[in-house]
Design a protein around this nucleic acid. Structure first.
Length: 151
DNA sequence: GCCAACGTTGGC
DNA sequence: GCCAACGTTGGC
């Protein structure tokens, strides 16, 4: 099983929103490293849902990739804040995935807990100043996070 | 609201 | 291709 971590600000889109919608296109990623991770995702991959810019920040649930390699529609929408005028129609720059809700954890695994448990080599999100919004998570680390989540 | 980190842009 | 200026992310 492959694991990822994906960030979203809960004011913009939260785990509760995903539970309501059941699935969503993970749009708006405009960073090439993050996009490359999105492009390498496969159906069935699991992704931790991380609330950034939240009080407290941390991992709040689990989702799974339900459709790979989707063209992010917001890049062609001039009204979207993610509009990219330079993205060619015949070769879209921004591709992403559709994810579906798996579960909301009974308790958040806070960034503080993650820092106490993992080094920045084990888990990229605890690295200071880390701004990457999509990142891989090592499977052994993922299993420990799942344990923390179930208290 | 502040500000450090850091990715991107654009002049040269 | 360098790098200063700028904009954004995201913890606090």
């Amino acid at each position: 099983m492959r694991y990822w971590l994906m960030k979203s600000e809960p004011d913009v889109y939260s785990i509760e929103d995903l539970e309501r919608d059941r699935q969503t296109i993970w749009d708006g990623v405009r960073n090439y490293q993050a996009r490359n991770f999105l492009r390498s995702m496969e159906v069935g991959d699991r992704a931790f849902f991380y609330h950034s810019n939240a009080t407290p920040p941390g991992i709040v649930g689990l989702m799974q990739v339900s459709q790979p390699d989707i063209v992010d529609p917001t890049q062609f929408d001039p009204k979207s804040k993610y509009y990219d005028a330079k993205s060619p129609q015949d070769n879209p720059r921004w591709r992403t995935v559709q994810v579906e809700f798996v579960e909301q954890f009974p308790q958040i695994v806070t960034l503080e807990q993650l820092r106490q448990t993992f080094s920045s080599e084990e888990l990229l999100v605890v690295r200071q100043g880390n701004r990457l919004s999509v990142m891989p998570v090592d499977e052994a680390v993922a299993q420990k996070i799942l344990k923390l989540a179930k208290g």
